[in-house]
Design a binder for these strands. Structure first.
Lengths: 207, 207
DNA sequence: GTCTATAACGAGATAGAC
DNA sequence: GTCTATCTCGTTATAGAC
């Protein structure tokens, strides 16, 4: 049996997933973990401090499970496939939803905000690395800021997860439309030399 | 002086913005509105019913303010400019953040979920219409599902707003990277006939 | 329609027994 | 290190005065 500290962390994650940030309290967490509510304060000092620890711990665990897969991605379509895979697995593990709920709670709490930003960065770093690798040979390589794009993609992913919670069917069409958009980007990466040259020239003028 | 019902709605929006969904209660709303807490239940029956009404009311008000601007958008860059404008104005009006907080709270409440989805649809409809108009002449027109894309863009926007709350600088780079990406898409729309033909052929084969 | 008062309960946090 | 008990306050919701 895991030690109490870890049980509280796991309980906190579970509680955020099932009750949302608004329904997460020392009592609900302790009930999920099967321990006394007082232990939240003994081990972590406050509920928010537990949330900070739990968020970082859970995110770390999920990210390492994906770092390998991301490093093996060879093109945008595969990256999107990993994204959809992640999205599907998140239905059980739920780290993205935890981050979404933490983000909502962190808007008015600088302490939570710092931890949530740090947790998000754990996802962003490998995504940024992957994007940089994939887009290095693109005709638009100089125009694309992979650091910013990785953050935009990650934030968008969280928004989509929240959206799916209130409109699953509509969110599905949203995800499908991104599939098609990725095809578009891949085609651009795979243009013949003439078209590629034309595109590059246009980009130079526009950028 | 506005009637109490409207004051409660305005108070609810204000409270969600400043306290987040986790810090929103009948008492905090009533305090913001300057009326008795009991009136929440007299006028709306429950806190969640007030939130539903407030979310729909406030969203409607903001969307009509943007429908005109969206209808005058002539290209993707202008659409993105409207988006950034909206993003900036949202710092004061805050409807996107309200929707983000509602989304977080709605994940475990079917009643809130329905209202939030309806409110979101109010934003999505004009965006979908605008996208459909702008992309009709694109070489990739047949490949793009404007309905899904409008939903993806809207959800992404909400995710970015949440992200900005915990990492303003990083969110800025994310927004900037989208600016550049829009340039990319515009250039594609503006290719010469040769490149355009090549792109179209590739798209047919890939799609 | 609006208020005060109150009921019934959950919240964060602490004290103290073991 | 874990528990029960408790304090104080905030929460939803209702009752009843005005």
């Amino acid at each position: 049996m895991a030690d109490t500290r870890q049980r509280l962390i796991d309980g906190a994650i579970d509680t955020i997933r099932t009750h949302g940030i608004a329904g997460t309290s020392a009592r609900t967490i302790a009930a999920t973990a099967g321990v006394s509510q007082a232990l939240v304060f003994y081990h972590f000092g406050s509920v928010n401090d537990l949330l900070r620890a739990a968020c970082l711990d859970a995110t770390q665990a999920r990210v390492v499970a994906y770092a390998d897969r991301l490093s093996q991605v060879a093109n945008l379509r595969e990256l999107l496939a990993v994204g959809r895979n992640l999205h599907a697995e998140e239905r059980t593990h739920g780290n993205v939803m935890v981050l979404a709920q933490m983000l909502a709670g962190a808007q008015n709490d600088a302490h939570l905000a710092e931890a949530t930003a740090t947790a998000l960065e754990k996802w962003i770093a490998p995504i940024e690395q992957t994007l940089g690798r994939l887009l290095a040979t693109s005709p638009a390589a100089g125009l694309i800021d992979t650091a910013g794009l990785a953050r935009a993609v990650s934030a968008a992913f969280i928004g989509l997860e929240l959206y799916e919670g209130v409109a699953p069917d509509a969110a599905q069409t949203a995800l499908d439309s991104l599939d098609r958009l990725a095809v578009l980007l891949e085609v651009m990466d795979d243009l013949g030399p003439v078209a590629r040259r034309a595109l590059r020239a246009k980009l130079r003028r526009a950028g």
